[in-house]
C-alpha cells in the first residue's frame, strides 16, 4: 500500500507543479469561470498524456507489483485523458457556443491541431483495446511501433494545440518548458528500451495488485479536476 501512495503522490506532485507553473508564471488574467476551468482542464489532459510516456505499461521495479498493474495504470490513464478531453471540449463550447464558428471551416489553426489530436486520441483508444489490437496489428512488435508512432503524433499535436492557443503558454519560458517536456516524454520510452535489462533481484512481484491501478488513476483524475477548479477560482476571484 505504501508504494501505491508513493506513486500517487508522485503523480500528484508532477501534475500540480506543472499546472501551477502554467497558470501563475504566465501572469495572464482570468477570463470567466467556466472558460478557465475548461482551458486549464485541458492542461490536466496534457499532463496525464505526459505521464503515459513515463508509465508505458512496462513493469517498474518500484512498486514491485505484477505486470498487469502497470498495464491497467496505462490503460485507465488513457480513459482519464479521454474524459478530460471530452470535458475540455464540452466545457469550452458550453461557456462560448460561438466557438463552433472556429471549428467549422475555415478552421483556425489552433482548432485544426485540436481536432487532429482528438481524432488521434479516439483512434488510439479504439485500436489499442486489448481485445482488438492484435486483430488490427499483425503482432505485438508492429503494435508497439504503431502505438508509439500514433502516441508521439498525439503528443506533438496536443503540444502544438496548447501552444497555438497562445494564452497560458504565451511566455517563452513556458513554451520552452513545454517543448522540453515533450522531447523528454518522447525520448523516455526509447531510452528505457535501449538501456540494458537489470538483473532480477530475489524479490517476487506482488500478486493480485492489478486492482490498485484504479485508485491511483481515480486519485490522478481528482487532482486533474481539483487543480483546474482551484486555479479558475483563484484567477476569477
Amino acid at each position: 500500500m505504501s508504494e501505491c501512495i508513493t506513486l500517487a503522490a508522485l503523480l500528484a506532485l508532477l501534475c500540480t507543479a506543472f499546472l501551477l507553473v502554467c497558470v501563475f508564471a504566465a501572469g495572464q488574467p482570468g477570463i470567466a469561470g467556466l472558460w478557465d476551468l475548461a482551458m486549464i482542464g485541458g492542461y490536466s489532459a496534457v499532463f496525464a498524456l505526459f505521464q503515459m510516456f513515463f508509465l508505458t505499461g512496462r513493469p517498474l521495479d518500484r512498486p514491485l507489483y505484477e505486470g498487469r498493474f502497470f498495464l491497467r495504470l496505462h490503460e485507465y490513464t488513457a480513459y482519464l485523458i479521454l474524459l478530460l478531453v471530452i470535458a475540455h471540449v464540452i466545457g469550452s463550447l458550453w461557456a462560448e457556443p460561438l466557438l463552433w464558428r472556429d471549428i467549422w471551416p475555415p478552421v483556425l489553426p489552433v482548432m485544426q491541431t485540436g481536432v487532429l489530436a482528438s481524432l488521434l486520441l479516439a483512434t488510439l483508444a479504439v485500436v489499442s483495446q486489448p481485445r482488438w489490437k492484435l486483430a488490427v496489428f499483425r503482432n505485438a512488435r508492429i503494435f508497439r511501433y504503431c502505438h508509439y508512432g500514433l502516441a508521439a503524433a498525439l503528443l506533438c499535436a496536443t503540444g502544438l494545440h496548447a501552444w497555438q492557443a497562445d494564452f497560458r503558454m504565451a511566455a517563452p519560458a513556458l513554451t520552452f518548458s513545454l517543448i522540453g517536456m515533450s522531447a523528454l516524454a518522447l525520448a523516455v520510452p526509447l531510452l528505457v528500451r535501449a538501456l540494458p535489462v537489470q538483473a532480477r533481484r530475489g524479490e517476487k512481484r506482488l500478486r493480485n495488485t492489478s486492482g490498485l491501478a484504479m485508485p491511483v488513476v481515480v486519485t490522478l483524475g481528482c487532482i486533474g479536476l481539483l487543480v483546474p477548479i482551484l486555479c479558475a477560482m483563484w484567477l476569477d476571484r
Binding site: P106, Q112, V115, T123, F137, R138
Partner: peptide, 27 residues
C-alpha cells in the same frame, strides 16, 4: 480475417488523413 481488418484500418486511417487535409485547406 486479420488481412481484411487491417485493410479496413488502413481505409479508416486514409479517410481520417484525407478528411484532415480537406479540413485544413478549407480555409
Amino acid at each position: 480475417r486479420n488481412g481484411r481488418l487491417s485493410i479496413a484500418a488502413v481505409c479508416v486511417a486514409a479517410g481520417l488523413v484525407g478528411g484532415g487535409i480537406w479540413w485544413s485547406v478549407s480555409g
